[in-house]
Amino acid sequence: MSNKRESMVTIDISNVQTANELHLLLKEKLEFPDFYGENWDAFWDAITGLISMPNKLVFIGWSGFEKKLPSDAKIMKQCFIDYNEEFPTLKCDFFFNYHEN
């Protein structure tokens, strides 16, 4: 796992229509390896052992995303909560209800 931590990463999920699109966007923005499996188990493995999470992660368009893909929104949010509980020294502040200006 890389020691380099970005201070903040912003991900615009307002146009995401499918879980696959979400995983591809997460892969790109969080710099997951090419072999990322594009599912929630692979996501957990990536954030807990393959990459360094940023200090702050901001999601733009969360409320619309949550309406389109409620189960994926719930799973992703729980992954981040679990991450901060399991890795308190690597805590990442997550902003899910960020509103566009």
Results as ranks from 00 to 15, higher is better:
Met1His: 09
Met1Ala: 15
Asn3Trp: 05
Arg5Ala: 07
Glu6Ser: 10
Ser7Tyr: 10
Val9Glu: 01
Thr10Gln: 13
Asp12Ala: 11
Asp12Lys: 09
Asp12Trp: 14
Ile13Pro: 01
Asn15Lys: 08
Asn15Thr: 11
Gln17Pro: 00
Gln17Tyr: 01
Thr18Gln: 04
Ala19Tyr: 03
Asn20Thr: 10
His23Ala: 06
His23Ile: 00
Leu24Ser: 11
Leu25Asn: 03
Leu26Ala: 03
Leu26Gly: 03
Leu26Asn: 03
Leu26Phe: 04
Glu28Asn: 14
Glu28Leu: 12
Lys29Trp: 00
Leu30Asp: 00
Glu31Pro: 04
Pro33Cys: 05
Asp34Met: 03
Phe35Leu: 05
Phe35Glu: 11
Phe35Tyr: 10
Glu38Val: 02
Asn39Leu: 05
Asn39Lys: 09
Asn39Tyr: 00
Asn39Gly: 00
Asp41Thr: 09
Asp41Ile: 03
Asp41Lys: 14
Ala42Leu: 03
Phe43Glu: 02
Phe43His: 13
Ala46Arg: 02
Ile47Arg: 00
Ile47Glu: 00
Thr48Cys: 09
Thr48Arg: 11
Thr48Ser: 05
Gly49Ile: 08
Leu50Tyr: 09
Leu50Ile: 00
Ile51Asp: 01
Ser52Asp: 04
Met53Gly: 10
Asn55Trp: 07
Lys56Asn: 15
Leu57Asn: 02
Val58Ser: 07
Val58Leu: 13
Val58Ile: 15
Phe59Glu: 12
Phe59Asp: 06
Ile60Arg: 14
Trp62Val: 05
Trp62Asp: 06
Gly64His: 14
Gly64Ala: 11
Phe65Arg: 10
Phe65Lys: 07
Phe65Trp: 11
Phe65Glu: 10
Lys67Ser: 15
Lys68Gly: 07
Lys68Thr: 09
Leu69His: 03
Pro70Asp: 08
Ala73Cys: 07
Met76Asn: 01
Met76Ala: 06
Met76Ser: 07
Met76Tyr: 07
Lys77Ile: 02
Lys77Arg: 14
Gln78Asn: 04
Ile81Leu: 08
Asp82Arg: 10
Tyr83Trp: 00
Tyr83Phe: 15
Asn84Phe: 10
Pro88Gln: 02
Pro88Arg: 09
Thr89Lys: 14
Leu90Tyr: 11
Lys91Tyr: 12
Lys91Trp: 10
Cys92Leu: 14
Phe94Glu: 00
Phe94Ser: 03
Phe94Tyr: 03
Phe94Met: 14
Phe95Gly: 04
Phe95Tyr: 15
Phe95Thr: 15
Phe96Val: 09
Tyr98Cys: 12
His99Lys: 14
His99Leu: 15
Glu100Asn: 10
Glu100Gln: 13
Glu100Ser: 05
Asn101Cys: 05
